[in-house]
Simulated scan of single mutants.
Amino acid sequence: MVASLSLPRILRIGRGAAEELGAVVAGLGLRRPLLVTDAFLVGTGAAERLLGILRGAGLSPALFDGTVPDPTTDSLVPGLEALRAHGADSVIGFGGGSPMDTAKALALLGVQGGRMRDYKAPHVNLGPALPVIAVPTTAGSGSEATQVTVITDSATDEKMMCLGPAFLPIAAVVDMELTLSMPPRLTADTGVDALTHAVEAYVSRKSGPFTDGLALTAIAGIGRHLRRAYADGSDAEAREAMMLAATQAGIAFSNSSVALVHGMSRPIGAHFHVAHGLSNAMLFPAVTAFSVHAAPERYADCARALGVASTADPAASASAALVEALHTLCHDLDVPTPRSYGIDHAAWAGLTPLMAEQALASGSPANNPAVPTAAQIEELYARVYA
């Protein structure tokens, strides 16, 4: 079987890598990048720092800071206006998953036009698109290395997964110093998101030898360092390890796939405006418990990489240890349930059939070791609520 693999052409990873952003962009023959970020990173001065680095390399950048959490089709409109007004020849996504997803969408729409709905899965987008350079500030989404963007349709509240090489950044600059200001809640949610990426990439029906190694390495790194980064945001060693693991997990799932957790997570984000990493964390233990029977050896490997089982443990007990470890991790990181987060039970129950339908329509549950029915997804939503 031939594996089809896609990675950024250029990866700069390490402390201080952001200082090389201008050289990376200029080296690609680009001159007029649009820096896509959010108001928070403008307020901290981080966006102006990157603009200075770009100008110092002789480039002519412009700024768009209108990114919103979980970007929508409406939020792309002013971004497209900024892109065209600047005559941008490239787009830099600077921030967490939302600015990077926004940058990817703008890069495609800026060339091809149309509606984002035209590009949602299962359609595979080959391009053309403007070159995207990704500069992450969180250790979680892995979007800097994936051929995926997620945009919510403002008219329907559907969280659309759009995929294909057109969305793959041509370059990624991964600098752990940019994560040092992340608060504990964001550190936890993005860290569990990265762990979900790695586990789902490994157990996915589309996994392969290339992605397996990256996924297991990422799981091990997250297992050793996530609690440390959560407890002490200034722990540079933990931050750097989490940043590397998030990128490894991103490459893994981009070239394998995500599965049921992500399929069920997107509707929660769309309908209840829960951050993507947090909605994954709410689901992760219960969905894993539902799935382990279908691939106990694969989940056992994940348990061993996470450090909660040994090679001497049989697959059944090791995979059970993984489920228990995920419950414990979410407890230690204070992950709320939908109920404790403040989501109304009647609203949750009322939307459950639609969320199950949307989860299945995304295609991700079909990659899960245990492929669920709509009724089983509804049962899982009911189980995780409290």
Rank of each mutant, 00 (worst) to 15 (best):
residue 320 A to F: 07
residue 278 L to D: 01
residue 366 A to Q: 08
residue 266 R to V: 00
residue 331 H to V: 02
residue 263 G to C: 05
residue 283 L to W: 01
residue 353 P to Y: 07
residue 364 S to F: 09
residue 313 D to R: 04
residue 301 D to E: 15
residue 357 E to K: 07
residue 264 M to V: 00
residue 292 V to C: 03
residue 340 S to C: 06
residue 348 W to T: 00
residue 265 S to E: 15
residue 360 L to V: 09
residue 326 L to N: 08
residue 358 Q to G: 02
residue 291 S to D: 13
residue 272 F to A: 04
residue 317 S to W: 08
residue 332 D to K: 08
residue 328 T to L: 14
residue 322 L to F: 14
residue 285 P to Y: 07
residue 321 A to F: 08
residue 340 S to H: 11
residue 293 H to Q: 12
residue 360 L to P: 02
residue 297 E to Q: 14
residue 278 L to E: 07
residue 356 A to E: 05
residue 328 T to M: 10
residue 335 V to I: 15
residue 268 I to Y: 00
residue 330 C to L: 13
residue 365 P to S: 05
residue 325 A to W: 11
residue 270 A to C: 06
residue 300 A to H: 10
residue 269 G to E: 05
residue 288 T to C: 06
residue 281 A to E: 05
residue 354 L to M: 12
residue 294 A to S: 09
residue 296 P to M: 09
residue 287 V to S: 03
residue 335 V to M: 15
residue 276 H to N: 05
residue 363 G to F: 06
residue 367 N to E: 06
residue 362 S to M: 04
residue 361 A to Y: 04
residue 357 E to R: 10
residue 277 G to F: 08
residue 352 T to I: 06
residue 304 R to M: 14
residue 326 L to Y: 06
residue 298 R to F: 05
residue 295 A to W: 10
residue 331 H to I: 01
residue 368 N to K: 02
residue 307 G to R: 13
residue 366 A to G: 05
residue 273 H to F: 04
residue 348 W to V: 01
residue 337 T to K: 07
residue 303 A to T: 10
residue 308 V to I: 13
residue 268 I to L: 13
residue 331 H to K: 11
residue 329 L to W: 12
residue 343 I to R: 00
residue 267 P to S: 05
residue 319 S to M: 08
residue 351 L to H: 08
residue 306 L to Q: 11
residue 324 E to K: 14
residue 354 L to R: 15
residue 336 P to W: 08
residue 347 A to M: 09
residue 303 A to M: 12
residue 339 R to C: 02
residue 292 V to T: 14
